[in-house]
């Protein structure tokens, strides 16, 4: 996994509540057995006016000009601004794979769906929960200002606005450590293999039917 420390990134607003993972990456793209290449299909049904299928050359597809990703001012955005319950629905990790492959590194929203929230950290994406009033302000400022950027510093757990105003965000020490260092969690967990084996032996002794 890529490490994440800080970025100064262009912000793109997605002003919709309850954006589900079916919308982030529609089901036909889930047939892939790879982890990469989902970026061109991110928000496929909202982004293009024709129907997308895996393997399509997206550079020639007709665009929905109203959709935010297609507006020139948001090109190469790295920070997504979203509304409540972002990433609800299916557990598909293809959703953060598509978001990361497109180039987003941070998502700021008032709330996220649980499974999606956890999946982001496994893919070097930082999901930031911000107060509703702050998110409202960011939406307003972002839409009003061409080239609106935010500075995000994971070490300091801080987001800095162009005005110099800032707010802090929460993250568990474990997730912060993994993200800052781009660590492979499986490798970390296997350092505790003896403890897992000891637990397993005890578990088997008390509930042998679980191991039949």
């Amino acid at each position: 996994m890529k490490a994440f420390r800080q970025i100064d990134g262009l912000v793109c607003p997605l002003d919709r509540a309850n954006v589900d993972t079916d919308a982030i990456i529609p089901k036909q793209f889930l047939k892939s057995i790879k982890r990469t290449g989902f970026g061109p299909y991110l928000f496929d049904e909202w982004r293009y006016t024709n129907h997308g299928e895996p393997g399509m050359d997206c550079s020639t597809r007709p665009l929905n000009k109203d959709f935010m990703l297609n507006q020139p001012r948001y090109r190469n955005a790295q920070i997504m601004l979203a509304r409540d319950n972002f990433g609800c629905g299916s557990s598909r990790e293809h959703a953060p794979w598509a978001i990361e492959d497109y180039g987003f590194q941070v998502i700021i929203a008032p709330s996220f769906a649980d499974i999606f929230f956890g999946n982001c950290y496994k893919n070097g994406i930082l999901p930031i929960v911000a107060a509703s009033e702050m998110v409202d302000k960011l939406f307003k400022d972002c839409v009003a200002t061409d080239g609106y950027r935010l500075k995000v510093d994971l070490e300091a757990q801080t987001v800095i606005l162009p005005s110099g105003e800032s707010f802090t965000f929460d993250i568990t020490p474990h997730r912060k450590h993994c993200l800052l260092n781009g660590l492979d969690e499986i490798g970390l967990t296997l350092q505790h293999a003896d403890e897992i084996r000891a637990f397993e032996a005890k578990h088997k002794a008390t509930q042998p039917w679980l191991f039949e």
């Binding site: 982890r35 629905g89 299916s90 557990s91 598909r92 990790e93 953060p96 499974i115 956890g118 999946n119 496994k122 893919n123 969690e185 499986i186 967990t189 296997l190 293999a193 897992i196 397993e200």
Partner: peptide
């Protein structure tokens, strides 16, 4: 790796969906 894993909670199990990275984590570490 499926959000509707919550179904199995009907039996008094703690059951939930996970992402693919977690599928790999469970395969490798239980």
């Amino acid at each position: 790796g499926d959000s509707h894993t919550s179904t199995h909670g009907a039996f008094g199990a703690f059951a939930h969906g996970i992402g693919t990275s977690e599928v790999e984590h469970v395969l490798a570490t239980q």
